[in-house]
């Protein structure tokens, strides 16, 4: 037959590349600091990866379907602010207890879903470029949280914060809730991406939306759902974030969107859409967190160069995957 170029070798490299990167970082970390592989340090890293990680799982779907969302960082800050205001306001009526925390969580989920749907509707119904829509909403949410906080910081009532804190710091069997929630989101995300019609449709749309349309796929609907799901996951991440420090300000969630996008791409999802994998995104998130962690744990390089190292590793991780594409 005419030129059947087997793709196995390339596929295997895109699979192995990010895993190799992760292993290399783990080895480097263990060699540089004996505490690195300790239980405490590893759970710290996993827990702090959870916010970006949960968001990045949603971002994987958006990017796979050929979209992009720049607003997630600001959205997280806005939802955190809204949640704190809501809980503080309801506190005198409900008192410190589970109802007020549930109210806060519901606020976060509904606000996230609403914000995601708004992005999605503007993109699918009005046909505006995702980059522009979410660049706009990024600015809007960022100023809204600054406005809500009067330029300062919104703080959760101290006693309420103590009550709510176990949601970040507590857990079962020594594994904290953010890690458990992150793991659940990843498992569900992986199943949805790999073995449901929705995941398949996302990949088809990102690959070629005309083909998807001509194949009777509900293109607009699927796209809308990716943004709604991402918004919802931003809400979930915020539910974990607020109890950590109990505050939100205009400095909350800055650059989270780029970290999430970088994690997705490092994990092997194609930026222009058409192919995505959730487990890869998890590896991407871990790679990003571990770089920061290792740099903090060692005095290897000047802290001024942290950004440069992070950037170099991101590029390297992606280059590794492309390496064998040359003769394709």
């Amino acid at each position: 037959m005419n030129a059947i170029i087997r793709t196995d070798r390339r596929l295997s490299m895109t699979v192995v590349g990010p895993v190799l990167g992760l292993i290399a970082l783990l080895v480097a970390g263990a060699l540089l600091n004996p505490n690195f592989l300790g239980w405490d340090n590893l759970t710290n890293v996993l827990a702090r990866s959870a916010f970006i990680g949960i968001i990045a799982v949603g971002m994987t779907f958006v990017i796979t379907a050929g979209g992009l969302d720049l607003s997630v960082g600001s959205m997280a800050a806005f939802i955190a602010g809204l949640m704190i205001l809501m809980m503080n306001k309801a506190l005198p009526g409900l008192g410190v207890g589970i109802p007020v925390v549930l109210l806060g969580m519901a606020t976060a989920l509904i606000a996230g879903l609403g914000a995601g749907l708004l992005n999605g509707l503007l993109i699918t119904r009005l046909g505006i470029e995702p980059f522009i829509v979410t660049l706009g909403s990024m600015g809007i949410y960022r100023s809204l949280v600054t406005w809500l906080a009067d330029g300062g910081t919104l703080s959760l009532d101290f006693t309420l914060r103590s009550f709510y804190q176990p949601v970040y710091y507590g857990g079962v069997f020594g594994i904290s809730w953010p890690i458990i929630v992150f793991a659940l989101v990843v498992i569900i995300g992986e199943i949805v991406m790999r073995s449901t019609a929705f995941g398949r449709h996302c990949a088809a749309i990102g690959s070629n939306d005309q083909v998807a349309r001509y194949s009777s796929v509900r293109v607009g609907h699927v796209r809308l759902m990716t943004y709604a799901a991402l918004g919802m996951l931003v809400g979930v991440a915020t539910i974990m974030y607020v109890p950590r420090l109990g505050s939100a300000s205009s400095a909350t969630g800055v650059l989270w969107e780029l970290e999430a996008i970088a994690a997705v791409i490092i994990g092997g999802t194609v930026l222009k859409g058409g192919f995505g994998r959730v487990w890869g995104t998890v590896i991407g998130v871990l790679i990003l967190s571990l770089i920061g962690n290792i740099l903090n744990l060692t005095d290897f390089v000047s802290p001024y160069l942290n950004g440069a190292i992070q950037g170099a590793i991101i590029v390297l991780a992606v280059v590794l995957q492309r390496e064998s594409k040359a003769d394709g």
Partner: peptide, 16 residues
């Protein structure tokens, strides 16, 4: 000068 960054850095100091 950021709460979240300081949290992360401090966690790593504590491990180290």
């Amino acid at each position: 000068w950021n709460r979240d960054d300081a949290f992360t850095v401090m966690q790593d100091f504590l491990s180290k």
